[in-house]
């Protein structure tokens, strides 16, 4: 099972789940939340936090501290993450610290395509920032959400386009040269099982060169709105 491939950080997390330690280090995280806000930029490509945060490519992170893993209704987690939640993984400072250090060491087949944040101080700062959105609903509303440049500007009509999944299957063959159909990720992110809307938004962010990566900017650049909808429709069906 997933827990066999554990590293030092993950072992710490497992100890927590087994009740060796209790509770999140909620009250007095020593980190610098301002520094954490800058570090969060990399997370914001997939995760929203703050006012009106919603599940996108990744689940939103409001209230993450104290939350059981894979707890958001309607968000499609990996089987690994679902199992971790069932097995009792709760997000605390220690478990989040281990997860962010090396996501796959804690949840072996997580779909989170993040190589890990190796500097312990960076992780403390990032978690200090995230914790502001967990303390209370009131605090969450005090902080401004990260800008979502395309999501906010995207013509709602584009999100309403019904994708031709069969055309999407053909178009997807171009994606599958690099992105694996089984959803595993090793150097190139998984693109299966995304919510259709998130897929469309992300592709338009590449098309408009808001997101970096020249390969994706080029690939998305020649896709029409209908073709992006077709791809989203197809990929949302992949298991």
């Amino acid at each position: 099972m997933a827990w066999r491939r554990l590293t030092r950080g993950a072992t710490r997390a497992l100890a927590l789940m087994a009740g060796v330690t209790t509770g999140a280090a909620k009250a007095d995280l020593p980190g610098d939340a301002e520094a954490g806000k800058d570090l969060y930029a990399v997370c914001s490509a997939c995760h929203q936090v703050g006012v009106n945060a919603r599940d996108r490519v990744g689940p939103h992170l409001n209230g993450i501290f104290g939350c059981r893993a894979a707890a958001h209704e309607g968000y499609r987690y990996s089987a690994s993450m679902e199992r971790a939640g069932t097995d009792g993984l709760v997000w605390t400072f220690e478990t989040l610290d281990a997860y962010i250090e090396n996501p796959r060491a804690l949840v072996s087949r997580t779909r989170m395509s993040f190589r890990g944040m190796h500097d312990p101080e960076d992780r403390v700062n990032l978690l200090a920032y995230l914790q502001k959105y967990s303390d209370s609903a009131a605090n969450a509303h005090e902080a401004q959400p990260k800008a979502q440049p395309v999501a906010d500007d995207l013509d709602p009509a584009i999100l309403d386009i019904e994708g031709d999944a069969e055309y999407g299957e053909y178009l997807a063959t171009e994606c599958l040269t690099c992105h694996k159909a089984d959803g595993s990720a090793d150097g190139i992110p998984s693109i299966t099982r995304w919510p259709e809307e998130a897929f469309v938004i992300v592709m338009h962010e590449y098309k408009n060169k808001v997101r970096p990566n020249p390969v994706m900017q080029m690939m998305a650049g020649r896709l029409t709105n209908e073709e992006i909808a077709a791809l989203a429709a197809y990929f949302s069906t992949l298991r």
């Binding site: 599958l176 690099c178 990720a185 090793d186 150097g187 190139i188 390969v215």
Partner: peptide, 10 residues
Amino acid sequence: EESLGWYAGI
């Protein structure tokens, strides 16, 4: 690292 992902993908 992206190239390693591409190799696995293709």
